[in-house]
Write a protein that binds this DNA or RNA. Structure first.
Lengths: 251, 251
DNA sequence: CGTATACTTGATCGTTATCAAGGCCTGTGG
DNA sequence: CCACAGGCCTTGATAACGATCAAGTATACG
């Protein structure tokens, strides 16, 4: 959710100067703010807290999650450098946020942020686009949680990590997983044991090979994509009806 | 998702006239558009289609869904009178939309809508608020799909319907379910058999009593809320840490 | 080096999917 | 008005997938 566009960040910032200090991209808004540090495992805010600030992740990884009445935790997303935290809400945070790794971030007062975005015809569509990306990610996650089995879920997750890595680095097959197995389990709606077993299964199949506890090598990205079960994203509009008729029934 | 605010619709529309034709609420934008009809079961658009239009639901119920590669269907939401369809996207629809019941709706060109909202300092926060509501709904659905068992899921769904009904009608205990069991199943990530069995179980417990195929009486709303397992929405920020420590592990 | 934490593996159980059959509304045509 | 057909729903039997319980192993950190 709220994927990064930080590749063009520096460029946009220089453009901002040209337009008499009017920032052109969302990140440039945060540029003047001091960088704050958050140790691994520390909380940034809690679900239900008054939402006084937004944050931009400068470095590190955050998890955002909800706790159910009986103590079960649902991680609704991980946030990386360039992502914004705390946008999709009104008066109170929708979720809690914690540092997975040591995190560097910039803080922005909610009111000022909203005013700045509201005043700028450049920033508004950018914020809107981010919300839409976040919405699309949320829907993909619903599909995953509704339909996919353990293997498909884990493959989808690994694929997601691989894609993110490839956006910032050419031709990588080594991805790092800074979060724990429990984090992954709570994100995918599974248990740590199932994560562990499925990981072993993928290793035995030769799809991945472990490279330390928080790192993994993707040996067969194609197989991984196939096992993720997203069906190569074939959005043939006319075939939707057909697919509905011969609908399988697996959960 | 995109909950209705239609109670204040008429008022806002009259205010719009005062401000020299500048519409004050999102629905008033659609007021001039002709009402279109869609028979039950017919498609409004397909996932992946170029998103040329937005729609306002005037009457009836829509389902929005995605079809997976193997034909499985995930219903990501139902839309009712006052809801907007097709907002959270960019160039292509994120999901398919079909009429559950005969539907009346108003169409608006995407470009015109975006221009109108972009130009209006009144409309912008309204659209933003709707997106946030939609996001909150999506996250609740993720929690449901991640953690809740069949009974909790069905109770959550029934409670959702009851709340919606009560927003427009005082003290109702009779709700109608225009969608089929298959729709409910695909929305809750279950099968029709499980929906049926759970419904019977709730009937035996005296929590609900069936009133025809597409209608149901909520005999014990309190029990229903308790069984839904949302824990009375107790957002005590300090207790989040405690809850995490004694976290249960059920999926 | 030792301890705590994270992870892996194994055995068993439970919930829900799946397969199968029967019953009930709904709408249609005689 | 009734009979029939089709879809929709319910109920039952069985199986599978993943949760849970339990034990053992590896890794990070003091």
């Amino acid at each position: 959710m709220l994927q990064a566009n930080h590749a063009v960040q520096a460029l946009k910032y220089s453009e901002a100067v040209v337009f008499g200090g009017e920032p052109i991209c969302l990140q440039s808004l945060f540029k003047k703010q001091p960088v704050e540090q958050l140790d691994a495992g520390r909380s940034l805010f809690f679900e239900g807290d008054p939402a006084k600030h937004l944050f931009e992740v400068v470095e590190g990884v955050l998890r955002i999650f909800k706790i159910m009445a009986d103590g079960r935790r649902v991680i609704t997303g991980f946030l990386y450098a360039g992502d914004l935290v705390g946008v999709s809400l009104r008066n109170h945070y929708l979720y809690s946020a914690e540092a997975v790794t040591p995190v560097k971030l910039r803080r922005f007062a909610r009111k000022s942020f909203e005013d700045a975005v509201s005043d700028s015809p450049e920033l508004r569509p950018q914020l809107f686009a981010r919300l839409c990306d976040e919405m699309a990610a949320a829907q993909d996650q619903m599909v995953l949680l509704s339909c996919k089995n353990a293997e498909e879920r884990l493959c989808s997750f690994l694929l997601q990590q691989l894609r993110r890595k490839r956006e910032q680095e050419r031709a990588t097959d080594l991805i790092d997983l800074p979060m724990t197995r429990l984090d992954i389990a709570d994100y995918l709606g599974l248990t740590i044991e199932t994560i562990s077993r499925t990981m072993t299964k993928l290793t035995n199949k030769g799809v991945v090979s472990p490279a330390g506890r928080h790192s993994i090598r993707i040996a067969k990205p194609g197989t991984l994509a196939h096992l993720a079960g997203d069906g190569d994203e074939c959005h043939d509009s006319s075939s939707s009806v057909v697919a509905f008729d011969c609908a399988g029934r697996r959960h």
